[in-house]
């Protein structure tokens, strides 16, 4: 389990809520930082949805290029966190 500071935790909760919204029927307990969206059952469109909705909820505008390297939810949260801190 990756430990989280409060800001990271806040962003992760937003991402998690969107994963649950997009991946209908998923058990929220399976959505952890170590997992990738693909592992959780997301297809290419689902992944875009999760990222876009999370950025919108956080009031961020994140260039798509910055998200290409994200291997799991921890990477995604880190990118979002970097923008949130600006």
């Amino acid at each position: 389990m990756i430990s989280m500071d409060p800001e990271t935790e806040r962003i992760f909760e937003v991402v998690k809520a969107n994963v649950v919204k997009v991946l209908t029927g998923i058990d929220p307990a399976t959505v952890t930082l170590e997992r990738s969206l693909t592992e959780l059952g997301a297809n290419s469109v689902d992944r875009v949805e999760v990222v876009l909705y999370s950025a919108e909820d956080l009031g961020l505008d994140v260039p798509r290029a910055e998200l290409h390297g994200a291997r799991n939810l921890a990477d995604l949260v880190a990118v979002l966190r970097r923008h949130a801190g600006r």
Partner: peptide
Amino acid sequence: RSPNPRHAV
């Protein structure tokens, strides 16, 4: 704003 992310599909 962005279009709906599912739009292309």
